[in-house]
Simulated scan of single mutants.
Amino acid sequence: MNGRLGAQQWIKTVAFFALMWCVLGLQACSSPMQDTRAAQLDALTTPEPDAQRQRAMRRLALASAYFEQNQSDAALQEARAALQIDATYPQAFSLIGLIHQRANAPALAQQSFEQALQLASQPLATPADLAEVQHNYGWFLCQQDRFEPAQAQLTQAVSQAGYRQVGKSWMALGVCQLRAGQKTQARRSFDAALALEPANPVARYQLAVLDWQNGDAQRAQVTLSSLNSSPQASAESLWLGIQLTRALAQPQEQRRLAQQLNQSFPNSTQALALAQGKFQDQ
């Protein structure tokens, strides 16, 4: 492909990274032991005015932990328990939407996200709460190839006051724009994500891919090098780094990255391609 990555490969890579970043950080986590101690504390103290929401938050934190461990049934049970405590809790509906999305039940996910969005838009909800729901809903819509409403939700999320995951939503917006074939807009979104989170591996990798596709191997290498020198390096980023060193005639750096790929990801498809000499510039 004359030194360029195939579109199918990097879109699949995008989907993997984005799904990981879409969930982590948006929901608080707790352990079952922490939840038990919290329940004991509730029994020993006089409830505060917001005790109902606090109890619901603890159940949802447990649900989020189960979700991150791929235990969807337990996560769904705990999220529903949170709603039994507080039926107006938007993040509980949002997590249920994520659970249904993972289970490939888009109609149920849609209903849950819409309910979450409605509750998060009420006057008593905070803009940051609304942004979390918009982020999750926007990514769901993007996964359904509904790019225009997906980008609208993600664009609104990054504009909400007090939202602490703005970099993540810029990254998700860039991914969605890539999927829609909007490379110029995606570059702007990834740049915005990196301005807020310089170590964001998805944004850094995808900017390097865009530079590589534009034939600027040197710029791509500058963008990618810090990622491949960090614990967040992936088989995909190392493989791209190897392609760049070949294009830039840097055999010593190529050998170093090849060794890193083989040591860190020996069973990856990229390591197999390296062993077979199936470079993408051939």
Score class of each variant (00 low, 15 high):
I11K: 09
I242S: 02
C176P: 04
K278P: 00
Q165A: 13
Q34K: 04
A74C: 02
A63V: 01
Y137C: 09
Q206F: 08
R204Y: 10
G241K: 01
L108Q: 14
A271T: 12
Y163A: 09
G97F: 02
A233F: 04
A203P: 10
E78Q: 06
L227F: 01
S226V: 05
Q151P: 03
Q8K: 13
T45N: 13
T223A: 12
Y205D: 04
M1E: 14
S112D: 09
M57R: 08
Y137V: 06
V166R: 05
T36G: 08
A116W: 03
G167Y: 00
Q69F: 12
A220P: 05
S112Y: 05
D50M: 05
M1A: 15
A82N: 13
A235Q: 04
S112F: 07
S189I: 00
M33A: 15
G215R: 03
E48V: 08
A195D: 15
R179T: 14
Q259M: 11
Q77K: 07
D216C: 09
Q71P: 03
L210M: 08
L60H: 09
G215Q: 01
Q143L: 15
A249S: 14
Q69V: 09
L210P: 02
S268P: 06
Q9W: 06
V175Y: 03
D216G: 00
T184F: 08
